[in-house]
């Protein structure tokens, strides 16, 4: 019997596909998310919008909060560690969380290096803005990736930009002649072996979700039509007027993303969406997506 193999790590991500992973900060919110059809929850002390508002250093959540959320639901529970903070990751693995998000939403602990994720039994997910970043994270052992978007904004534009960037580079890579792959790897800052693999298979080697700015069922369906495997909703649910109803609607939209009639039906009367932030109004040094190397 073997645990923590690549197939097992990647396997859980495969099972999350077509689903919605919701940020929660209490066991009660976790229950609401599960009852609304979330395929997993992300256990946090504060949602990204509140982290953004509070400023200061954002760290791994208190283990008590994570454990109480794990007790409250039967679906997988993810938690965030700071970029490069391998001890936070060791603690999260010890708690038994199902996936670790090495996340730019928290304040980075290392300004040069990410966690060596290959050393862990528990699988990792990481954010990316382009193909090189995605393949670097996969090279370090991430078994799932997501767009970074701009967390806590309720503004989908950055997630769209990041997904299109990854996809565009992927298509270009597939069409390159083999002798150009080494230079492509150098230019992207991506591991050569993974560049060769993507060139050959025409797709990313792991599941790719959308994250960072999803606030409505239409946002979720937009990302699904663009080609992501599933969506994260951070602040968008519990910062809205009717979280349970909005959560259900986003779950249904992620399944029926290609059916405008169903999308219209489930988008009705959802109450107030979270208040959004225009990206240009965020100072460069406050942009979470620029964290990660």
């Amino acid at each position: 019997m073997s645990q923590g193999t690549w197939a097992v790590k990647k396997g859980l991500a495969e099972m999350l596909k077509g689903g919605v992973i919701m940020d929660v900060t209490t066991p009660e919110q976790a229950k609401i998310a599960e009852e609304a059809g979330a395929c997993a929850v992300m256990a946090l002390e504060r949602v990204p919008a509140d982290i953004r508002a509070a400023g200061g250093v954002a760290r791994m959540a208190d283990p008590t909060i994570i454990l109480r959320i794990m007790d409250a639901v039967t679906i997988p529970v993810m938690a965030k560690a700071r970029i490069g903070h391998f001890v936070e990751a060791q603690i999260l693995e010890g708690l038994g969380v199902d996936y670790i998000d090495e996340s730019e939403v928290l304040t980075p602990a290392d300004d040069l290096f990410h966690i060596n994720k290959n050393l862990f039994t528990v699988p990792f997910i990481c954010g990316c803005r382009n193909l090189g970043e995605a393949l670097r994270r996969i090279g370090e052992g991430a078994a799932m990736i997501r767009t970074k978007g701009e967390p806590g904004t309720g503004n989908i534009v950055e997630a769209v930009k990041h997904f299109r960037q990854v996809n565009g580079e992927l298509k270009r890579l597939v069409n390159l002649p083999e002798e150009e792959l080494m230079t492509a790897a150098k230019d992207m800052g991506a591991p050569y072996e993974l560049v060769k693999e993507v060139h050959k298979t025409g797709k990313l080697p792991v599941v790719n979700f959308a994250a960072g700015g999803i606030a409505t069922p239409a946002d979720a369906a937009l990302m699904m039509q663009l080609g992501v495997d599933g969506v994260f909703v951070g602040s968008g649910i519990f910062k809205s007027g009717d979280p349970a109803k909005r959560a259900r609607a986003i779950v249904a939209a992620t399944t029926h993303y290609n059916d405008p009639q169903i999308l219209a039906e489930i988008s009705k009367d959802l109450g107030e969406a979270m208040v959004g932030i225009e990206i240009h109004n965020i100072k460069t040094e406050e942009r979470m997506q620029d964290r990660g190397w």
């Binding site: 495969e14 099972m15 999350l16 596909k17 077509g18 689903g19 599960e34 009852e35 609304a36 059809g37 979330a38 395929c39 997993a40 039967t74 679906i75 997988p76 259900r248 779950v251 249904a252 399944t255 029926h256």
Partner: peptide
């Protein structure tokens, strides 16, 4: 298929 049974069950009922 595999996935989350609570999610699949809810969507099965809803639709």
């Amino acid at each position: 298929p595999g996935g989350e049974s609570t999610t699949i069950g809810l969507l099965m009922q809803q639709f």
